[in-house]
Design a protein around this nucleic acid. Structure first.
Length: 223
DNA sequence: ATGACGATTTACT
DNA sequence: GTAAATCGTCATA
């Protein structure tokens, strides 16, 4: 069971309307929020979101829903705002997205990095179990990268389609005790790993907290 | 039925 | 810097 301390830290859970906005707006708004997971054991895992990417639907060549493509894999993108879209890629990795926008509009925000907040020991175990790494994983690397988030939090296709606005195992929360992310410390860059996406590849649709040690990719600099 | 390819991570030269 | 790991998904036939 969550301790009173944990409950206070986690703060207000996001509801449906919090998710119902365009993906760039959501990508910015998610910075500083918590991704919270409750394990079957009752233990809580949580990480503060420090890096996101917006995917803009049918017109976005980098999006899985580009051109209105709708397949068994990406059908969660067409669900209500607040749905979790988890997909499997490269034969070994999972990534988690937050579906947003209007009902049925296939837009989403990819969670790329978290600062671990609760359940660090379990996250470390989950990561070690999937990576078979030799050296211990430093805290800043626990959730640095979209597939690392899923490893650390134990997210798989089982969690695809969960309703973050209602499910008891996975949700987004506005933390009570953590500082708000000021616009001065936010950087925007092109998205990572979408070089195939033509002119959409260079659009600044990645958001991150500048100079945060848990952010993936090249070092981000404050503007 | 077949083949190409990932919204990645890690290790290594 | 480059490459390997590894397989579900999707487009084509």
């Amino acid at each position: 069971m969550p301790t009173p301390d944990a409950a206070r830290l986690i703060g207000r859970r996001w509801s449906r309307r919090d998710f119902a906005r365009p993906s760039p707006a959501l990508a910015r708004a998610l910075l500083g929020m918590l991704l919270v997971r409750r394990l079957d054991s009752g233990e809580l895992l949580a990480g503060r979101i420090v890096e996101t990417e917006a995917y803009c639907g049918v017109k976005d060549r980098a999006a899985h829903s580009f051109g209105g493509r709708r397949t068994p894999r990406n059908q969660a993108m067409y669900s209500r705002p607040g749905t979790a879209y988890v997909y499997f890629t490269y034969g070994l990795h999972h990534c988690v997205n937050v579906v947003c926008g209007a009902e049925g509009e296939p837009v989403a925000v990819l969670l790329r990095a978290l600062e671990p907040v609760l359940g660090l020991a379990s996250m470390t175990r989950f990561r070690a179990a999937t990576t078979a790494g030799k050296s211990p994983i430093p805290l800043r690397r626990l959730c640095r990268g979209p597939a690392c988030i899923c490893q650390a939090m134990g997210l798989t296709l089982e969690h695809n389609g969960l309703d973050l606005a209602a499910d008891t195992r996975l949700w987004i929360a506005d933390p009570a005790g953590l500082p708000r992310v000021h616009s001065r410390s936010v950087v925007r860059t092109p998205r990572i790993g979408v070089d195939y996406a033509g002119d959409w590849a260079s659009r600044p649709l990645r958001w991150a907290i500048a100079d945060h040690p848990c952010v993936s990719g090249p070092r981000t600099r404050r503007e």
